[in-house]
Design a protein around this nucleic acid. Structure first.
Lengths: 243, 243
DNA sequence: AGGAGTTTGTGAACGCGCGAACAAAATTGC
DNA sequence: GCAATTTTGTTCGCGCGTTCACAAACTCCT
């Protein structure tokens, strides 16, 4: 039996809209904190960095939560969006790979405030297991199964080197995790039905570099290719221990 | 005088393609490291996690670097993509905000191997200035101007709390930075011509949570909104010190 | 109560990106 | 040298997402 995709009546929300809902949620929170009780689509759009037509269309997928001639009640809309995203209660999350980045993530208090709770930190390195990071004792990666099943964890974060990422993902899927946030610079292969999102710092910087190059109008001579494609040496492993 | 966007003949590369070029570059590097000298679009597409038609179309925007009936020369194509992105030489980068995340980024060796060099770490906190992080002495944020002008830095990374992000961005633009990678959970307002990309962990997790909620078919009762929209308290500041 | 002024929600046009399908070009075998 | 095979580069149709523009609905003022 395949899981029904729409809990409510056949409302399907475009992926592009889903990706913006968290931005709206944050903007609403910011507005609420400055004491604003009501806002127009124009106000909220500005706060969220989008245009108001898009905002209204996005919100229209959720329902009619505004009042014509008035605008939106900040708290009410905030709750409706949070409910739609599914962050009215906390989701337990496990982080695998407690290197430099993993530790930074473990210390990230934004998790808790935005609907997530770091339940466990895991690593395969015996030197790391048992050490306390961000108030949690690092668990052995071998205990993933136990931890995940015990607490019904469905979201996992991968912060390992690229070389370990696929095997960690495989294991995560085996034990029942169905959403993965991947920080390792590697393409993950997962079965149907498993959601993967990736965060890749190098890629973001390279996209910026591309546009910078265009701005300056500088183009390399298309000829000599011995000019080294950056020094991509044997670092393909170690670097990912950090991000 | 507005900067011309296309260094070569009016070749314009779609944004979606630009975002995938770094992925291809990484896949090619991986292939090269396993000793493969030639690959088909099918091979590369698999390694990059896209379909081959899309890959070929993407590459066609760059030029005709393949050989029909044969495929692509791995090293040659790798160089061509690197040149197109602009990472045949290193870009100097400054990181502002040396908290938990900033330090993790500073230690990220993938910068160097992918075409970037962390030139300086800056923070406004006097307790942090002077401390050594990742082999660099943390500089005073007030010295941004000097550092940027001296080394022609055009790419800046913001890893500060959300509250400081906008003012840091403003200052960056003032001193001549035209591309910003923003890790702070805040919408940045920048002038025309300045590129901003954002990396937001909470948003990625919330997108996963949305789909998880759909999978499980669980829907909150649309009624009571006093059920707390997560505990978004006074943490809106502190948490961003970490991410 | 009614008109003027706001602001939402949505229908329709437009443009971009994706994927399939195919023609062109190269290699391989005979 | 020629046919068969492989694989690229490109053309075309389709669907998604964005934006415009406007009708519906609510408030406020007289």
């Amino acid at each position: 039996m395949t899981a029904r995709t729409s809990p409510e009546a056949g409302r399907v929300i475009p992926e592009a809209t889903v990706a913006r809902l968290p931005v709206y949620l944050r903007a609403l929170t910011a507005l609420a904190e400055t004491g604003i009780r009501t806002c127009s689509s124009e106000d909220l759009a500005t706060a969220a960095g989008v245009n108001s037509a898009k905002l209204r269309k996005d919100l229209s997928y959720l329902g009619s939560y505004g009042t014509r001639g008035v605008g939106y009640d900040v708290d009410y809309l905030r709750y409706q969006i949070a409910r739609e995203i599914g962050v009215t209660h906390d989701w337990p999350v496990v982080i695998v790979g407690i290197g430099n980045l993993g530790q930074a993530l473990a210390n990230y208090s934004g998790f808790r405030s935005r609907g997530f709770r770091v339940l466990a930190l895991l690593d395969a390195d015996p030197d790391l297991v048992g050490r306390e990071v961000a108030g949690l004792a690092v668990s052995d990666f071998a205990d993933l199964d136990e931890i995940v099943r015990e607490h019904d964890v469905v979201i996992g974060v991968i912060a390992t080197p690229a070389t370990s990422a696929q095997s960690v993902a495989d294991r995560m899927v085996e034990v029942g995790i169905s959403s993965i946030l991947n920080f390792a610079p590697a393409v993950l292969n997962v079965p149907e039905g498993i959601d993967v999102r990736k965060v890749d710092l190098s890629i973001e910087l390279q996209i910026l570099a591309f546009h910078e190059q265009r701005k300056s109008g500088a183009a390399d001579v298309p000829g000599d290719m011995d000019a080294a494609v950056a020094t991509d040496d044997a670092d393909t492993d170690e670097l990912e221990e950090v991000l």
